[in-house]
Structure formats: C-alpha cells, structure tokens
Computed example of a mutant assay.
Amino acid sequence: MPQAELEYFPHFLNTEKANFLFEKLLKEVSWQQQNIKLFGKEIPQPRLTAFFAEKGISYTYSGLQLKPETFSSEILDLKQQTEEVSGFEFNTCLANLYRDGNDSMGWHADDEQVLGKNPLIASISLGGVRSFQFKHKTNKNLKEKIELQHGSLLIMKGIMQHYWKHQLPKTKKDVSPRINLTFRQIQ
C-alpha cells in the first residue's frame, strides 16, 4: 500500500493465551455503550467500549469524552508486550467489543491532534475474525482489507493516518464476538 506503513503479526498471542484473555476481558471489563451524534441525531454507538489510561490522561473523539479506568494487569501486560514489538511507548488503550456482525466502526483516520503528527496505533484482536478495510483518502481506487485473526497484532504507523482511512464494517455473516484493544500515545 503506498503511503502506508503496516505491520501484521497474525500469531502475536498463542491460542491458549488469546482464549483466556478474551473470556476474562469479556466478563471483567466495564463495557459501556455511549451515544454519538450522526447527521444531527443522537444514536447508540454500534459497539461497546472501555478506555484505560495512565493517571491524568483523557481522550475525546467524535464528541465523546472518555473517562479512563486504570490498566488491569492483563491489559498492562499486553501493553508492555506491544511496546516491545513496536519499539514505541503507549499510555492509553481503547477497548472495543463487537458483539456480532451488526456492531461496527465506520470510516475514519486516527489523526486527532492529541495523537501527534505521525501516530503509531497498535491493535490487538481477540475473538471472532473480522474484515478490516482500508481506503486511500484521495485515490478512491486504492482499497485493501485484512482478516484480523484471533490473537493478532496490527500496527499502523508513519504517515499512514494522513493518507488512509480504515473501518470495521457491519457484516451479515455469522461472526463470533470480537474484542479489539487499540494502544495509543496521547500527548
């Protein structure tokens, strides 16, 4: 993909550890469904979320002010493993729970000013396999997708957020629940 830096580790976590983490996080995280504004209407966000951060850090996107929880030992462990692989330090984790194929995340770029000029986004997938799609912001013919595997790690870095959008679309396929842990550095 031109103007994109991606690294994909399909077996970042072994199946046993990925299964354990999926079940534990599914049960123990305080999942919330917040309302977002879309075309002037307030609607429930099409997924459940939780936000973890170091003390004193908050995050706002799409008009949502996220209140952080402290890192659980499991998420802190994953953060440290992700830092070792990426060579980058993170101070937040946005967790998303996609309950079924109706839950989704629309086209966007992680290009908020608080993420810095060329943000590094590290995303761990647990649970059901889902199609993660990319499209170039100006060349509409450039489209890609990747099937995010259970226990995988996807890293987006460099100038990618300037040129590409990404989404996790709805699907009519029968898919299992999926947890996504997205590590970021908020400045």
Rank of each mutant, 00 (worst) to 15 (best):
A18S: 11
P177N: 11
L153S: 13
G101N: 01
I57W: 07
K135T: 12
T49S: 15
W107F: 01
F183R: 00
M1V: 14
S30I: 11
N35S: 13
G151Y: 12
E5W: 07
S104R: 10
S62Y: 15
S86F: 09
K165L: 13
C93S: 00
F134V: 14
L38D: 10
T60Q: 09
L25V: 03
Q133F: 06
F9P: 02
T138C: 09
E74I: 02
F22T: 01
Y59C: 08
S152L: 09
W164T: 04
W107G: 05
H11L: 05
E54R: 12
G158W: 00
T82A: 06
L13F: 03
T171K: 08
L142A: 15
P169R: 06
L76N: 00
R178C: 08
M156R: 05
A95I: 06
I57Y: 08
F132M: 04
L25P: 04
K67I: 08
N14L: 05
F39T: 05
L78F: 03
D77I: 04
K170F: 02
K79C: 04
Y98E: 12
N35F: 11
G151E: 07
G128V: 00
V114S: 10
F51T: 00
T171A: 08
Q65L: 12
N14E: 14
L64T: 06
Q65M: 10
G158T: 01
P177I: 02
K67M: 12
L115K: 06
K173G: 02
L48F: 09
L181Y: 04
L66C: 14
L66P: 11
K41I: 03
D110W: 07
G127Q: 05
Q3T: 15
I155C: 13
L153D: 05
S104F: 09
W107S: 07
L6E: 11
L153H: 09
E69K: 13
E28H: 08
L120N: 11
F20P: 04
L148C: 02
K17P: 02
V29G: 08
K17L: 11
L153E: 08
E5M: 13
S123D: 02
N91E: 06
T70H: 05
G116H: 13
M105I: 13
K37E: 15
V85I: 14
Q113V: 15
H150K: 12
E28L: 04
S58I: 11
S152V: 05
T15F: 03
G56L: 08
F183M: 05
I57P: 03
D100M: 01
A95W: 08
K117E: 04
G151M: 07
I124Y: 07
L25Q: 04
F52N: 06
Q167G: 01
K137V: 03
G106T: 11
D110Q: 09
T138D: 06
A122V: 09
M105P: 11
W31N: 09
